[in-house]
Amino acid sequence: MSTLEIRDLHVEVETESGPKEILRGVDLTVNSNETHAIMGPNGSGKSTLAYSIAGHPKYTVTRGEVLLDGENVLEMAVDERARAGLFLAMQYPVEVPGVSMSNFLRSAATAVRGEAPKVRHWVKEVKSAMTDLEIDPTFAERSVNEGFSGGEKKRHEVLQLSLLKPKFAVLDETDSGLDVDALRVVSKGVNDYKAQSDVGVLLITHYTRILRYIAPDRVHVFVNGRVAESGGPELAEELEANGYERFTSAAAEKEEQPA
């Protein structure tokens, strides 16, 4: 049983007009075997939260901590966080020309598992994971994400999830840009991994659509750089019916109050 605890997280980015605060005190705790949906309008800081947990150099943490079983991951390098059991499925996976998918997957698995997987076993493992995600075997010899369609990139993110077997997975808008069929395949991949592991999932999304496939235990509404309201799955239904307006106007009023 593991815990990912985000405490009073403040994050800023450098802009042309100086540093700008994006996250303004995020508090959130995810346990093993739990799926938390983080929903919010564009620009609310959802993706910043995802990238800050993973350690993207563009984001500067000014206050707070992110604890994985009590260890502050903010003090770890990006690769150490991954080896500690964190995984970020990116909204825009990066193309790495000249590095084959199979070389990349094997390098990553070797790093995360602490030893090189046995070749015969590994080939089987990758093949079966690719079949589950309906990925053509020829993709193994293609360069990482190069020339992949949006849906192919997302499938490969979930393929990595299933091979790297993290304790916590942050899925950043994994549903964006997917048609219904691709969404079904990708969701099944996530659910399969949930079923065979104790993974805790932080599912970041703008729309409720993916929640029909991946059932959340908790739903958090993210507005203006912090969690505005938390609840059960019924909160997602309310958002489906009424949108984010109730939360965005409330946040705006709060902003106007003198400190």
Binding site: A54, G55, H56, P57, A77, V78, D79, R81, A82, R83, L88, M90, P93, V94, E95, V96, P97, G98, V99, N103, F104, S107, A108, A111, V112, S143, V144, Q160, L164
Partner: peptide, 22 residues
């Protein structure tokens, strides 16, 4: 590219080598 490879657990020096080799 470096961030992407490192976010999968690959240490920085190895990630750089992969990119240059690629």
């Amino acid at each position: 590219q470096l961030f992407y490879l490192m976010a999968r657990g690959i240490p920085e020096a190895q990630a750089r080598r992969l990119v240059v080799r690629g």
